[in-house]
Design a protein around this nucleic acid. Structure first.
Lengths: 339, 339
DNA sequence: ATGATGTGCCAAAGCGCTTTGGCAACCTGT
DNA sequence: ACAGGTTGCCAAAGCGCTTTGGCACATCAT
């Protein structure tokens, strides 16, 4: 453990001077500076981060809360967060909750111990359970700067960086309309997470404006399994009569649904067209390759991180602002013109 | 910022007593303890992690180095690391290098600043470049405990937790032999990373022992793109004559290869059988669904993390040991019996 | 020569915690 | 009643850094 005192001694100066030489906050003569740097490199000196944090009251570290880093979408988001943080000299502590309130609580405690300067919170959508409310979170975080990313909590006053979900729903509707479909199954998500509500709204507004009819199944939960279950529930209708299109609000549900449908002899896209949401990597490789609304989780991550660091460095709160990121339709092979 | 002194004052005791009440390292009478806890909860006191780290000389934090968290394989590995760490009260700092020596260097400096107690190092395989050597790493890390996970560096003395790559190669060979194939294209990776060398060795030993012939292409780099390029290079042979099987040393290369082959009219698996390695999520959804050798990156992550934390808590070095994790063959639709 | 201005270094305090020797006050058994 | 043990609290030092007031000395204009 080589400390600043050791360097100071070897260079024949005071620790103060070593600190100044390193930080540049006060002038140190060239000759002394040279001696100091020589000593530092001879001793392989690297300042202790804990000591610095304590003295400065700042850790240059962020917490990233995600439900599941194994999920490619969140992994990509994490990549964006890490990149943006590293570019600014910040570290990021990976906090995965697995939708487990106990684990989430433990991380919030860690955050309150001021191990981090701020938090990037990707709440995700709790499958069964409901997420913490805005008020709870505020209480638990006691003033720690935070931004939501990807999913916001209904009615939150925290800053949020999210995709333009409503536009995404609209894009899906317009695409299917253009292909001649007139009756669609819309798979939304239980518990009314903001993202799902907006996707549904965007889709339905565009759809009904064009005279389309729809069936709404709101029992999804963003897992592949729920896509499978919903496929079973609608096996009787899909592809028979005029129910020829599906808007699944994420790719996993779309993939699960397609798998079940195909195994039951429903042809995609000849009998039924399906469009997903997200554009996860499997969407490209799946069969048929999935038409979907692409989000850019990497960009969401970098943006949110840039915002919070910006706020930290200017010592002002991050609260209030909402930024929407554009989404885009990716046409692949799971949708086709009506026969 | 509510400090231990504030709690002490409110409870009418010394900070020492508060510390003891919290840690239990010395006895505190029930009555006093009650007062202390009352004060703590009234003030929402959480001890400062920086101060604790400085005083204890320990951060209860690990660094996880991975080339790319956006890669599903490493994401799953990270999930394992995070889980194992969280279960033991450790945090993990996510360090992604993107195979960029400059970024890697910056993280090593962070590590040397004792912001972490140890490091879990998933070196990955540098596409063009070569990884740091064992000696370099040792120099750069100046004694910081570390374990390799997933990929080790040739000749390293560091502890490593890796898949049984040789057995994996053997499994692939046995599967293809069983299906009647006798001539295979083996796609290994440039730069001779340990994992690739072992997969090749395992495959070839089992293959030639059974009288099989093979073509070795060692220009892969574990990217989908390299799979595409290699497919082009062998278009003339694959599926013509007796070259009917491919062993790609990861799924991404297999997927790229299959995509090119199919677009050129080569049928999978009728004309050519291909087996991959890893079992990434896309392998399940791809068309045809990919036969592959499954690794368990989550388990690698938890194992490596458990080992390093174990060593940290017992204050003894982690060096030396090598643990091999089993792999398993997953039969899907990209392989078939020879016509 | 003289005060005014810089220049460049250092001493000391402080960040919030843990650790440990010490010390009253209270039990024992005899 | 008294030596010897406990029990339970506190004071003070220390972890390794940053910050800031102070101070000696050099430089300048007058």
């Amino acid at each position: 453990m080589v400390s600043i005192d050791a360097v100071a001694e070897m260079a024949g100066v005071s620790p103060t001077t070593v600190s100044h030489a390193l930080s540049g906050k006060r002038k140190v003569s060239g000759e002394v500076k040279a001696r100091v740097f020589a000593a530092m490199s001879k001793l392989d000196y690297v300042p202790s981060r804990s000591a610095q944090s304590l003295a400065l009251g700042v850790t240059r570290t962020l917490a990233l809360m995600v439900p599941d880093i194994g999920n490619g979408y969140f992994a990509e988001l994490a990549k964006g967060v890490e990149r943006a943080a590293a570019d600014r000299g910040y570290n990021v502590i990976l906090c995965t909750t697995g939708f487990d309130h106990a684990r989430e609580r433990r991380y919030l405690e860690m955050i309150n111990s001021r191990a981090v300067d701020g938090v990037v919170y990707a709440a995700g959508v709790y499958p069964a359970d409901s997420p913490p409310t805005d008020k709870e979170l505020r209480g638990l975080l006691s003033g720690m700067p935070m931004v939501f990313v990807d999913e916001e909590i209904a009615g939150t006053q925290f800053t949020a960086v999210v995709s333009d979900n409503e536009a995404g729903g609209r894009l899906a509707a317009e695409h299917l309309l253009e292909l001649g479909h007139r009756c669609a199954l819309v798979i939304s998500v239980a518990g009314e997470p903001v993202s799902s509500v907006l996707r549904t709204r965007g889709f339905i507004e565009a759809w009904t404006a064009a005279g389309g009819r729809y069936v709404l199944n709101d029992r999804g939960d963003f897992t592949e399994q729920s896509g499978r279950i919903i496929a079973e529930q609608h096996l009787g209708d899909l592809g028979r009569g005029d129910l020829t299109a599906v808007f699944a609000q994420n790719d996993l549900m779309a993939l699960g649904l397609i798998d079940v449908l195909r195994s039951r002899g429903v042809r995609i896209p000849e009998d039924v067209s399906v469009v997903g949401f997200d554009d996860i990597s499997a969407a490209r490789y799946s069969y048929p390759a999935l038409t979907t609304v692409r989000q850019d989780p990497f960009a969401l991550g970098t943006r949110a991180t840039a915002m919070i660091i910006e706020a930290l460095e200017r010592k002002r709160p991050v609260d209030g602002q909402h930024t929407l990121h554009p989404v885009e339709l990716v046409r692949r092979d799971s949708t086709a013109r009506m026969a």
